[in-house]
């Protein structure tokens, strides 16, 4: 594995740990979109179906896959649990978490049926998960843009998550040169994903950083 791939995976891991530790330590779910988190559960469950084939790639690969599936489910459980412990915050979340996910689900499902490596259940599911992942952050970004304020938690989380797929792009270029292979679907979706995140950081920079600089006494 090349350094971009390792760093990419580590930042992906870090993003989830940042999210979980913050929810646990601050005991708040403010600013988090449950829709995005449910979409990630769907992403990991549909992508890692090969776990059931037991023809595993490597120990590292399997452990990471199991971690991503279980941690994404755990985040949704934590958010659901807050329904009783943080009733007000939970209600606020539902009121601001209003992105229409059915459109992304439909769009990515169509994309998966049209663009895939092989017309089999596992490959369509894999393709669906890759396309879905590229846009799964949209409900979270939509929620953030509606509330107009961003907690440092959500920004750190989104930053680490955005970094992960961005680092995968030099990884793919590296692999193309050293191994002569490139996954065009992963590459195309990875570029879309990176663009979605860079748009967020551009807006974040313009709105939050510049504004706070202007507001200085």
């Amino acid at each position: 594995m090349n350094p971009f791939r390792i760093l990419g995976d580590l930042s992906h891991l870090a993003s989830i740990l940042v999210l979980i530790f913050n929810i646990k330590s601050t005991n708040t779910i403010e600013g988090i979109s449950i829709k995005t988190q449910v979409l990630y559960v769907l992403v990991f469950l549909t992508r890692y179906l090969d776990l059931f084939s037991f023809r595993l790639v490597s120990f590292y690969n399997t452990i990471m896959k199991l971690f991503f599936i279980s941690s994404s489910i755990y985040v949704v459980v934590l958010l659901q649990r807050s329904k009783t412990t943080q009733a007000v915050a939970y209600k606020t979340m539902l009121l601001t978490d209003t992105f229409k996910v059915q459109y992304i689900l439909l769009g990515t499902l169509i994309a998966a049926f049209v663009i895939n490596h092989k017309f089999t259940f596992v490959e369509i599911a894999w393709s669906f998960s890759v396309w879905l992942e590229s846009v799964a952050i949209l409900p979270q970004l939509f929620m953030l843009s509606k509330s107009g304020k961003s907690k440092s938690l959500t920004v750190h989380y989104i930053f680490a998550l955005g970094l992960y797929r961005t680092l995968y792009i030099p990884n793919w270029i590296w692999r193309y040169h050293t191994e002569g292979v490139i996954d065009k679907i992963a590459l195309a979706a990875g570029i879309i994903q990176t663009l979605v995140y860079s748009d967020f950081f551009y807006l974040y920079y313009k709105k939050v950083i510049k504004r706070s600089a202007l507001n200085l006494p």
Partner: peptide, 10 residues
């Protein structure tokens, strides 16, 4: 028949 595709990334 092409062999099964292996997705070795995450």
């Amino acid at each position: 028949e092409p062999s099964e595709i292996v997705h070795d990334e995450l």
